[in-house]
């Protein structure tokens, strides 16, 4: 099958063909982008601009009433809980990297080695992802029951431990919510890593073996470089995703005990939906966005430096 591009290549001079090639490529490329752009424009970008606009206004319901300058920002930043909620969000992000950052990659590497029963293990790793978010929250709330009839306390009780307070223990709340998030999400991410690991050229392993490389060296020198791009991307997305967390604490603890699990976005949610102060809610959202931008710039700096070394 010969396409018109290659025909035109043979007819016209090489310079011209490159030009028309470029134009056609641009048209095709933009046609591919178009449906997505429409979706983004209508459901993400335009609404976001409206939201940003509202953050500078005094609002009544969703209508901008009066230009307020930075008043909303001032109000939310001086809130006595603001620093705490920002700090909580950072803590969520930290724990999510500790608990859920590398687990999927390790699981993927392990899955990659299994010969028999692979299908079962893959299925069980992915199984929590099938469970809908609300169900996960309800379920873990039941499992984390702090009294003696909670499932986990029952299990640990048999081992002679506990009973534990779980989510009611203010210092444990955020890590535990992260455990449930990691539980619910690691399988999907692991499958992505697995797909990538399976595309590793097997002759690389063989070559390494001839050089006498050990198991760990093969991971270090073959697999890790292969997935490093993906790892960097997924970690960044995880950081950004978790920093915006609010549905899990909302469903599991309501932000308690004593705001120990209130995240910055839960504050934004509360402003909008518990107090109906949309302007302030948008302002909190904007501040969170700015912090995230800072995060990602920092992240790119750090990872780029590593690359050049």
């Amino acid at each position: 099958m010969k396409s018109d591009v290659s025909i035109s290549k043979s007819r016209i001079g090489i310079h011209n063909s490159m030009m028309s090639d470029k134009i056609k490529r641009n048209i095709t490329g933009w046609l591919m982008l178009l449906p997505g752009c429409i979706c983004f424009l209508i459901f993400v970008i335009q609404p976001m601009i409206v939201g940003i606009y509202l953050s500078f206004f005094e609002t009544k319901g969703f209508e901008a009433v009066r230009f307020a300058g930075l008043q909303n920002y001032k109000d939310v930043i001086t809130d006595s809980l603001f620093i705490k909620t920002v700090w909580n969000s950072v803590s969520y992000t930290f724990w999510s990297i500790v608990i859920g950052g590398f687990t999927p990659l390790i699981v993927a590497m392990m899955l990659n080695e299994v010969v028999r029963g692979k299908a079962f293990f893959r299925f069980s790793a992915y199984f929590p992802c099938i469970i809908p978010g609300i169900v996960t929250a309800i379920m873990w709330k039941i499992l984390f029951q702090p009294d003696a009839n909670g499932f986990l306390n029952m299990i640990f009780g048999k081992l002679g431990l506990g009973p534990f307070q779980w989510l009611q223990n203010a210092t444990m709340t955020i890590p535990l919510i992260n455990v449930t998030m990691a539980w619910a999400g690691f399988g999907g991410t692991a499958l992505i890593y697995l797909a990538s690991l399976q595309s590793v050229d097997h002759s690389l392993y063989e070559a390494a073996e001839i050089d006498g490389a050990s198991f760990w060296r093969k991971i270090w020198h073959i697999q890790l470089p292969h997935v490093s791009g993906l790892l960097k991307m997924l970690l960044l997305m995880q950081i950004m995703g978790v920093f915006k967390v609010f549905q899990q604490p909302l469903a599991m603890t309501g932000g308690g005990p004593n705001n120990a699990s209130t995240s910055i976005m839960l504050t934004a949610y509360n402003y909008a939906f518990s107090y109906m102060q949309v302007g302030r809610s948008s302002a909190v959202g904007m501040i969170a966005g700015i912090i995230l931008c800072g995060f990602s710039i920092l992240y790119f700096r750090v990872t780029r430096k590593k690359d050049s070394v």
Binding site: Q145, P146, D147, A148, P163, L167, Q168, T253, G254, G256, P257
Partner: peptide, 8 residues
């Protein structure tokens, strides 16, 4: 009181 204190 019940062990569980985060009660709706």
């Amino acid at each position: 009181l019940p062990e569980n204190i985060l009660l709706a």
